[in-house]
């Protein structure tokens, strides 16, 4: 599996996700820069976390209109899988590749801690190494992860099974205190209609080392390698 990681001024998790991708696939991903106008042929494009363009105007708003995102949108339209993590999720939403918006956390605080996620779909490119309903423990680190969308969009996401992950208690049940940011319906990550684009606020790449944070996030990278070889 060849992956390309797109980075922007202010990205800071690109190394983490490149290490996770390489650990799972054995292939070193390529790193692209925001000004690049072309993305070479690749099996997967990743938009990592960070604070692209200093979060000016709105998180992800500037990055969504950068040259590399134009190329990314073209690839995504042709079916190349795209993964956006944290700021990457915010960028994909601002770019219109995923519906809804990510608002300031309900607590108004930057939240950096471990959370539990329930895997809502195990039939996707990104989640096939997990079981449906499996609870995994991965970190979040963000101030704007409060997912919101209008009722029609939420209904569409639920009806089509496009909610990928929800924030839950360790036993898999929904609980207000398990939701770190106030996201509507405890939504932590969503797919696009074709399930070739996934955006999520938590950082699975930071749970891929038994010595630092556990291995619960590794399943996502294993899933991608399973699906994309």
């Amino acid at each position: 599996m060849k992956a390309a990681v797109v980075s922007f001024p202010g990205s800071n998790r690109e190394r983490d996700i490149m290490m996770a991708l390489e650990r799972a696939s054995g292939v070193k991903p390529s790193l692209l820069w925001h000004g690049d106008t072309e993305i070479p042929d690749t099996d997967l494009i990743v938009v990592p976390g960070g604070f692209s363009y200093g979060d000016y105007l709105r998180c992800g708003a500037m990055a969504a209109h950068s040259p590399v995102m134009k190329a990314l949108k073209e690839k995504a339209a042709k079916g190349t899988p795209v993964l956006g993590v944290c700021n990457g999720f915010q960028i994909l939403v601002e770019a219109g590749l995923l519906p809804g918006a990510l608002m300031r956390n309900a607590s108004l605080k930057f939240v950096c801690r471990q959370v539990h996620l329930r895997v809502e779909d195990s039939q996707s490119l990104f989640t096939n190494a997990y079981e449906k309903g499996q609870v995994i423990r991965v970190p979040v680190a963000h101030a704007e992860g409060n997912y919101t969308a209008d009722e029609d969009t939420l209904k569409h996401l639920e009806d089509r099974g496009l909610v990928a992950f929800r924030y839950v208690a360790p036993d898999g049940s929904l609980a207000p205190e398990a939701n770190p940011n106030g996201s509507t319906r405890a939504i932590a990550g969503i797919f696009n209609d074709s399930k070739t684009v996934l955006g999520l606020m938590p950082h699975p790449e930071d749970a891929t080392d038994p010595h630092a944070g556990g291995m619960d996030g590794f399943g996502m990278f294993k899933s991608l390698v399973n699906a994309l070889h």
Binding site: L57, R58, A61, H65, E94, P99, G100, A101, M103, T148, A149, D150
Partner: peptide
């Protein structure tokens, strides 16, 4: 429409 506002919210 394009940048200054996020018309979703």
């Amino acid at each position: 429409e394009k940048l200054l506002a996020n018309t979703v919210i």
